[in-house]
Amino acid sequence: MVSRYQVLEDILEEVRGRKSLVATALILAPILSFLLSLLVGRYQISPQIVFSVLISKILPFHYDVPKQVEIVIIQVRLPRAIAAALVGAALALSGTSFQGLFRNPLVSSQILGVASGAGFGAALALLLSGDPVIVQVSAFGFGIVAVAISYALSRTYRETSLLTLVLAGIVVGALFSALISLIKYVADPYEKLPSITFWLMGSLSAVSFRELTWNFIPIVVPCIILVLARWRLNVLSLGEEEAKALGIDVERMRMLVISCCTLMTAAAVSIAGMVGWVGLVIPHIGRMLVGPDHKVLVPASIAIGAAYLLIVDSMVRIVSTFEMPLGVLTAIIGAPFFAYLLRKRTVSWR
């Protein structure tokens, strides 16, 4: 066993030594996975046709294909691929930011209860109306409400302590999980319950451009802010006192990071449902490849997260004749990988 780990570690060491190689791979991975994701699906279309149709939309030349084929490519696969990239990037980036902020490599984007809150919002909307727009808005809104409650609960005499914040997040997460169960319990088992359950398992199969335009800004704007402020995450990860001594307004910086992560995750969950493990595992893969410096780690996480979800979402469509729920597959791949990381903990953190 040991020797096999050693081999893997040697490979990683080798890869880390070649910075330009890693950088190239990190740039190419999301692009290639994006193209891959446009090619796969139950409706067989040759790559040549797919790319011709795409190019004909950008460049002024006409390419004649059946209307149906064009709809599959432009209305179904393209928004789905964009959504997978955005959701993957958002979850991975908020995971990385939270791990830095909380100085804990075991937290993920869900630590403050955003996913449970969003799940509850979606379940409630599915129970009461079922209109996809209302479901999205409700998921997004309750995701933010959950984090706001966590934050409010953790306010103490002088300032917010990270430990109480995590505990408050766990409490709020548990509360919303219980409320989700309650909704499932009262939901009509033939009509409502399956749609709630399926939503909670996560999927990108119903994504259209309408959802994307809704969620584009709450994902992209916080993402830009975090990328710009990424070096500050290094200083924040030193802990409250040292960050203060280095001139950082810790309270305000925390608020900024938490707000950005919450907006991104709430939007991601409202598009894709509960997609676990991305926000936990991707930051670790990033650290293995480029090291812990957030200056490099933040862009790397975005690239890896986008590529990972694009690939998993492609697999969802390939592995079986029915569509496997996305959240199930990310967990099936993510959980064993994380177990491996726990055994080899020196690779990614102390």
Binding site: P105, R230, L246, I248, R287, G291, P292, R350
Partner: peptide
């Protein structure tokens, strides 16, 4: 000082520049 992440020594020292750098700079 409890550092959680295995930053390189130079990166730790660089953090001393934080007060001289704006929030969005590296």
């Amino acid at each position: 000082h409890g550092l959680v992440f295995p930053y390189k020594t130079i990166d730790v020292v660089l953090m001393g520049r934080a007060p001289h750098l704006g929030i969005f700079s590296t």
